[in-house]
């Protein structure tokens, strides 16, 4: 198993030496409208950092769209196309087609969408571009609810989570949609999950995605302090705890069949993760156990699949 960011000597995990941060700093990313501590902008800057200037962003309604700026201003250092909420995958496919037809095949088309646009309203179109294996890098920054519209549940909201549409007494009763399995079922060349707390893991995955062609999908956890009812300072801490507690394991799926855990989650920090967030305040002890058991089960599946690489893994088969 990949050693992950923790070396044996226990040196700082996120001590990533950014050799090429000029790209983001030479352009003016300042002044964006994201809430203090927003994870989305941390993710975006590091992704752009790897992708470089030959990138076009396609972005639906959502936090990223709203916080990018207001006409006639924008923080984006690369061409940025706003599209309707449900249109990201198709519009990205159109941009791809248009660029290819204009001799710009080398340009990366980055679909940059939240969980609402991805897990819910854009799911049909997403499935379509996955099935067609469009040459797009689709990245979902998942803040686990409709945050921009005021914290409504999405199908990415975790079991037991509070939102304005799953209020106290009617907390979300369904587990988070397994987007990795959905993408794997389409046998896309590359799926990976990522967390802003593990930047070297993240940037390696973005670099890998950039190297490949076809539909590449990154599922990134994006801490949202106001939506998660957490202290803005805890964003990265939460992004780390989510991984360690196995609620958001870091893994890759290659060609839909080959699973690889890229970080060994210790399993610790589950309670702390919930405690630091008001959105889990109303969960009963029983619900917590259900959530944790679900996370552990999923992680065990990943571990099994990881270990079984080399043999044939049958899609959809339960280990």
């Amino acid at each position: 198993m990949n050693q992950g960011p923790h070396s044996a000597a226990g040196r700082p995990a996120a001590a990533v030496a950014m050799t090429d941060y000029e790209f983001c700093s030479q352009y003016d990313l300042y002044g964006h409208m994201a809430c203090p501590g927003c994870g989305e902008k941390i993710l975006l800057r590091h992704i752009l950092n790897v992708l470089g200037p030959e990138t076009v962003i396609v972005c639906p309604a959502g936090c990223a769209a709203v916080t990018d700026g207001v006409f006639p201003h924008s923080i984006s250092p690369v061409p940025f196309l706003h599209v309707p909420f449900d249109a990201t995958p198709a519009a990205a496919a159109g941009v791809r087609a248009g660029l290819d037809l204009s001799g710009r095949k080398h340009v990366t088309v980055l679909a940059w969408a939240g969980d609402g646009a991805t897990f819910d309203i854009g799911m049909g179109a997403l499935s379509a571009i996955a099935e067609r294996n469009e040459n797009i890098l689709y990245v979902c920054y998942d803040n686990e609810a409709y945050m921009n519209t005021g914290i409504q549940r999405s199908s990415a909201t975790p079991y037991g989570g509070w939102s304005t549409t799953t209020p106290k007494g009617q907390l979300k009763a369904e587990p988070k949609k397994n987007i990795g399995a959905i993408m794997a079922a389409h046998r896309i060349p590359y799926f990976a999950s990522g967390s802003p707390a593990f930047l070297d893991d993240l940037t390696a995955k973005v670099a890998q995605a950039k190297r490949l062609s076809g539909l590449r999908f990154l599922h990134l956890l994006s801490p949202c302090p106001p939506g998660w009812k957490a202290d803005p300072r805890d964003g990265i801490t939460l992004a780390r705890l989510a991984v360690e507690s196995r609620l958001f394991p870091l893994y890759e799926i290659i060609e839909g069949t080959h699973y690889r855990l890229t970080h060994e989650s210790s399993g610790a920090g589950f309670d702390e993760y919930l405690q630091l967030q008001g959105r889990f305040r109303y969960m009963s002890a029983g619900d917590r156990r259900i959530l944790q058991a679900d996370a552990d089960r999923f992680y065990a599946q990943l571990t099994l699949r990881h270990n079984r690489n080399g043999e044939t893994t049958v899609i959809g088969e339960e280990p």
Binding site: D28, Y30, G31, H32, M33, G69, F71, P72, H73, S74
Partner: peptide, 13 residues
Amino acid sequence: LAVSSGSMSWNKT
């Protein structure tokens, strides 16, 4: 059309 012409750096957050 609504095409941007400047950065957000004026927005001193």
